[in-house]
C-alpha cells in the first residue's frame, strides 16, 4: 500500500495518476464489493417499474400492516402499501439525492476551493472566512434551516445538503491546491505565459481531483444519511413519495408491532452507505493515501 504514496506525492500529471493504478482497483476487495453493490442497486433503481411487484403509492385499506408473506415479501405499511415496492422505488430517490448533491457540491466546492487556493492573498482570505463560517455550523443544522426556508421537497433537500456540504469540498480542494501550487510544472506553465484561469483548469484542478473524488464518495454517503434524517424529522421529501427516510419514519410508530418496515428501510440505507464508504476507502487507498483525514461518511 505504501508504495502508492510515491505516485501521488510526486508531481504526477493526471494521466499517469489515473492510468498506472487501474489494475489496483480490481485487486482492492472493498472497492470491488462497494462497486458491485452500487451497480446492482442502480440497476434496481433504474428498473424500479419492472422490479417492483406493486405500485409504491397504491393504498389498500383491507390489507394494512400485513406481516411478510409470499404476496408481500416485506409486508405492508399502515395504508396497505407494499413495503418492498416502496423500498425499490425509494432507491431511485436516494440515489438521485446522492448524485445531485455530489454534482452540485463538487462543482461549486472545487471551483471555490481552487480559486481560493490558487489566487491566494485577500481573495483567499475572504473566501475562506466565509467558508469557515459555513463550516462552523453543524452541517445537519444548516441543512435543516435551509429546508425550513424553502419548504420541504426533493429539490429543497438536495439544495440544502449541497449547500451544507460545499464548504467541506471547498476546504479540501483549497488545501490540496496549496500543496500543488509550488510544484515545478505549475511554475513552468506560469513562466511560459499561460493565463491564471488556464493554469487553474488545465493543471491545478485535474491534479487536485483524486482527493476530491474521495470526498465526493463520502459526500454521496452523507447526502443519503442526511435525506433520511430530514425525512425522519418530517422535513424531507413530501409523502406519499417513497423514500427510504419516509419509510423509516412511517414505520417508526409500528416499530414494535411491525418492526420490519423501519428495519428493512434502515438496512437499505446502511447497505448503500457502506458500499459508498467501501468505494471511498478503495479510492483513497489507491488514488491518494494522504487522505487519511477522510475517515468516511457521517451525518454532516
Amino acid at each position: 500500500m505504501t508504495d502508492v504514496s510515491t505516485t501521488a506525492d510526486t508531481a504526477a500529471p493526471t494521466r499517469r495518476a489515473f492510468g498506472g493504478i487501474r489494475s489496483r482497483y480490481l485487486r482492492h476487495p472493498g472497492f470491488m464489493t462497494g462497486l458491485i453493490v452500487l451497480v446492482l442497486i442502480s440497476i434496481v433503481a433504474v428498473g424500479a417499474p419492472v422490479f417492483a411487484p406493486y405500485s409504491p403509492l397504491e393504498t389498500d385499506m383491507l390489507k394494512t400492516l400485513a406481516p411478510p408473506s409470499a404476496d408481500h415479501l416485506l409486508g405492508t405499511d399502515q395504508f396497505g402499501r407494499d413495503v418492498l415496492s416502496r423500498l425499490i422505488w425509494g432507491a431511485r430517490i436516494s440515489l438521485q439525492v446522492a448524485a445531485m448533491v455530489v454534482l452540485i457540491s463538487l462543482t461549486f466546492g472545487t471551483l471555490i476551493g481552487a480559486v481560493a487556493g490558487y489566487a491566494g492573498g485577500w481573495v483567499e482570505r475572504v473566501i475562506m472566512v466565509g467558508n469557515d463560517i459555513l463550516l462552523a455550523f453543524p452541517g445537519f443544522l444548516l441543512a435543516l434551516a435551509l429546508v425550513a426556508v424553502r419548504g420541504s421537497s426533493l429539490d429543497s433537500v438536495i439544495l440544502a445538503v449541497s449547500i451544507a456540504y460545499t464548504p467541506r469540498v471547498a476546504a479540501v480542494m483549497r488545501s490540496v491546491v496549496l500543496t500543488i501550487k509550488p510544484r515545478p510544472y505549475i511554475e513552468a506553465s506560469q513562466a511560459i505565459g499561460m493565463t491564471a484561469s488556464r493554469v487553474l483548469f488545465v493543471h491545478v484542478i485535474p491534479n487536485a481531483l483524486p482527493p476530491v473524488i474521495v470526498v465526493a464518495t463520502v459526500s454521496a454517503a452523507t447526502a443519503i444519511l442526511a435525506e433520511a434524517g430530514l425525512s425522519y424529522l418530517g422535513l424531507g421529501v413530501q409523502p406519499p413519495a417513497a423514500t427510504w427516510g419516509n419509510v423509516i419514519s412511517d414505520g417508526q410508530s409500528y416499530i414494535i408491532s411491525n418492526p420490519w418496515i423501519s428495519i428493512s428501510a434502515g438496512g437499505c440505507i446502511a447497505i448503500v452507505v457502506i458500499a459508498l464508504n467501501l468505494l471511498g476507502d478503495g479510492l483513497r487507498d489507491t488514488l491518494d493515501p494522504q487522505m487519511r483525514r477522510y475517515a468516511g461518511s457521517r451525518m454532516l
Binding site: 403509492l57 397504491e58 393504498t59 385499506m61 399502515q78 395504508f79 425550513a148 420541504s152 418530517g234 413530501q238 409523502p239 406519499p240 410508530s253
Partner: peptide
C-alpha cells in the same frame, strides 16, 4: 400525526374516481 397520514389514503381514493390529487403537508 395522524392528519398528515390519513390524507394519503384519501388522496388515493380520489385518484380512483378520476380526480388528480396533490398532497401538501405544511408545518
Amino acid at each position: 400525526s395522524p392528519y398528515d397520514q390519513l390524507i394519503i389514503p384519501v388522496a388515493n381514493d380520489l385518484n380512483k374516481i378520476g380526480i388528480d390529487t396533490k398532497i401538501t403537508i405544511l408545518e
